[in-house]
Structure formats: C-alpha cells, structure tokens
Design a binder for these strands. Structure first.
Lengths: 239, 239
DNA sequence: TCAAAAGTGTTCTCACTACACCCATGC
DNA sequence: GCATGGGTGTAGTGAGAACACTTTTGA
C-alpha cells in the first residue's frame, strides 16, 4: 500500500455471502434464497448483500442474518469469516468482491422468512447444488470448514440451544461428520475439556420422550479444545 | 444479494496486505516497508497494494510478493488468505477493504528490496510493532495462524529450502512455537506422517559445520497432518 | 581424542477404545 | 416388563515421552 494514485485502483462493489447452517431432523441444512431477478433468476443462492457505507463486513453479515432468518436477536450467534472471493468475472455484470461467512444456528421454528421479498428456505446440504454465482464453491468451503472446526474448537455448541444434553451435542458431531461415536467415551472427552460445557445445576430433561432424563449443560467459556476431539477413521461402533 | 439497485452500494477500494514470514538466525522475521507518504509517513507497514482491474486478491498478493521480495519466481511459494479487514475508518481517507495474506519463505539472501521506492526490510517479529493502519492486528492474527497451522498441516516445510534436513525442520517448529522438542520423537513423528516429507536418495549434508551429515528430505505431497503434531505444554527437555 | 550433530533402541506411562453394566423414565 | 436413552466402570492396547546409546563428521 504505497501511493494513493487515484487512477491506480478501481472501485469494487463489496458484498457478504452467508452460509447459514443448522441441524434439522438429523441432517445438516443450509439456508438458501431463490433469486427473483437476473442474473441467475430462479436459481438458489446463499443469502447476502452489499455493505452499507458505514458497515464492516461482520456488521453487514449480522444484519443480513437477522433479515433472512427473521430472528429478533442475532447477537451472540456464532458468525465466522471464511474467506473472500474476488475472482474477476464471478459476477457477470460488475466487479464484486464478496466476503463469505459461516453461521451456525440451533434448530429454529420453521417460519423464518422474515424481511425480504425472496423467500428463504432450509435445504438439506446434500441436495443443495447448482447455486447462483460461485456459491457452490463457497458453500462447499464453508461445509469443510465447519467440519474441521468441530475437531479443535467448541463450535459444536453453536448448533445447540442455550441448554442442551450431552446426547444432543454428540448428535451434532455425528451428523456433521457422518460418523458414529461411542457415547461413554464422548461424554468423558467433553467433560474432561476444561471450559467446553458447564452443568446446569439440578436441571434435567427427556430427549426422545423416553429414557432417563439427561442432565443439562450450557456452553462454557472456552473456544478452543485442548486436546482436540479427533475425527478418527474408526471410532465408535455401529448403532 | 438480491437487487442491484445502483444506489444500494457504495464503491470501495480493495487492497491486499501481506504478512511475509521467514526464519533468520533462529528467529521469526517479518517483511516490513517504511511508508514514504501520509498518512503514517515514516511508519512501518505490511507490504501490499491495490487490486488491479483484472486481478483476484490472490493474484495481486503474489504480484506484490514478487515486487517486494525481488524474487524472480514466486510460483509455488505458500500464500494463504487469512481474513478480510473492513472496519470503516481503518484508512483515514477513504473506505478501504483489505484482504490479508500470509506468506512463508525460506531464508533469503539479504538484498531483497526489489522493485519499489520504499525499501523493504526483514524485522524480527518481536520488535515489529506500532505499524501503520491496523497492521499490528493483522500481523498478530497472521502470526497466530501460522503457529496454529504448523500443528495440523505440512506448512513447516514452506520455511525450508527445497531440500532440508530433519534438524532444520525441527528448528522451524522450535522457533515458531518457542519450545524445545525431543529430536528422536520428532523424527519418528515426521517420518510416520505419510506424505509429509520424502527422502532424497543418497543425499546428505552437514548442518552445523560439525557432526554427522544429515540425510536430506523434500516436502511431500501431503498438505494436512493426521494425526497432528501437537504443541503440548510440556514436550521435550531443556537443551 | 573430543565435541557436535544425526540416527536408533527401549522402557514406561497414560490416554483412549471397546465394551459390560446399571439407572431412570414412558408405554 | 420392556424398550429407550443416560450414566459409570474397567480391561487391554497402542502411541508417545523420556532417555540411553551408537554413528559419523570436523577440529
């Protein structure tokens, strides 16, 4: 960043794109919007939009998240910057640089499409494809990042409501990784990680309608996991 | 990204900033340039510059890297996008969104200041502070990322020349992490990681001028480490 | 012959896997 | 009772830390 020759740079449009994940019915889902206008009219796309003049990318992402999900309060939700996509030609009309974010939400009540004209929908990750722009790639990058981050951060609790059982937390890992974990060992690993979860004293809740009520936990203050919860090739047993 | 109302967005300048690391004399160094003009004239800053009209951020970063280091061939050098800094006011004159990159270089011959007016210098990381703009924060973020990535990727070889000894590779870890590792165990871990390094048949070289010549290795095809080379709190012994 | 650096062997410990088993609840 | 999910106990194994030891070079 040397000179500021007014002709040495060109103005760009800057947008944010959001890969918003949640777990529904035991499967990873992503929030998509259907485009109403060209280009890519009728195609699905990641929610997003332009930065306002006094906004950072993080602020814009949080605003878009609130608009698309209809949630009144999106403070405290996990929002993570992924990377920035800047290839010329990724938007056919103009030069658009897009900062991509991943957001992790607990299961929401279905009617979420809030502010905008285009209706937003939860789509199972496996059936989300052929998106507008380069959003297929952004979504794939986001998915990879989320899976990786479960290993060495406390991110998994972002998929859970404020109070959750260890069984629910385990199902987050099993769903995102597509593996089966051993319940006793999972429990011990999680409880042995300082600051990962902390018990809600005296609270318990039934999960499947049957069985012993499970103790409730909430997310602890830690953000990284030492040692990591490794996604080993052969952990756990079938069923 | 719904409508394209021409008034709904504002043009931004987009730049890249580079945190270029290398190891010199057993210490982590970073490449800095001295600013010649306002704002922050006379202050040190990360090298960087504006995106050209037909460049992606990655292309621009590689071009800046070549200009600042004076290296003829920067293809193949490890360049990694860190994150994007977009807070309003991070540049006092205009709205500038900057995509930050980290680059890892082997030890270079000293005269590197190549194309540009501002002279570039290798500065020990520990003495690099009070930089222009928000570059203190970018540099700190980059440093953290590099340290973390040594654990679970094969990034360490990027600090080494094309052919290197295991002792040199170990010194990369020890320098970046500030720890002392046990040589026999380090050797076994590295050689047990498939694709991390591969031997150069028959080649050997002296490292410290004395001692047994060490076998040479080059970087293997792997990019991630399974299992990771964990930076445990108490590994190795003093000296 | 000594110092220095590479390379090998070996023991011991601890963490983790793979289970068996018990507890509490709804039907 | 029995199915379902939560929670505890434990044996065996395997990876890694710690450290002794050998090898090969320069001075």
């Amino acid at each position: 960043m040397h000179g500021y020759d007014k002709h040495a740079y060109e103005p760009f449009a800057v947008t944010v794109d959001l890969a918003v994940f949640t777990l529904r019915a035991g499967a990873l889902h992503v929030l998509l919007v259907e485009r109403g206008q060209e280009p890519y009219a009728g195609r699905w796309a990641l929610p997003g939009g332009f930065l306002l003049p006094d906004e950072s990318a993080e602020t814009a992402a949080r605003r878009e998240l609130a608009e698309e999900t209809g949630l009144a309060d999106v403070t405290g939700l996990h929002l993570e910057q992924l990377r920035t996509y800047s290839e010329p030609g990724r938007d056919p009309r103009m030069r658009v640089v897009s900062v991509a974010f991943a957001a992790l939400l607990p299961h929401l009540p279905e009617p979420h499409g809030g502010g905008d004209a285009a209706e937003a929908r939860w789509v199972p990750y496996d059936t989300a494809g052929n998106l507008a722009f380069d959003h297929d790639r952004i979504l794939a990058d986001a998915r990879t990042r989320v899976g990786d981050k479960l290993e060495y951060t406390c991110l998994a609790t972002a998929f859970c409501p404020a109070e959750f059982t260890l069984g629910e937390l385990q199902r987050v890992y099993e769903t995102v990784w597509g593996t089966v974990l051993d319940r006793p060992n999972f429990r011990r690993k999680v409880l042995a990680s300082p600051g990962f979860v902390e018990p809600v004293p005296g609270a318990a809740r039934l999960t499947g309608g049957r069985g012993k009520p499970a103790a409730l936990y909430r997310a602890g203050p830690a953000t990284t996991l030492h040692p990591p919860l490794l996604r080993t090739p052969r952990e756990g047993r079938p069923a």
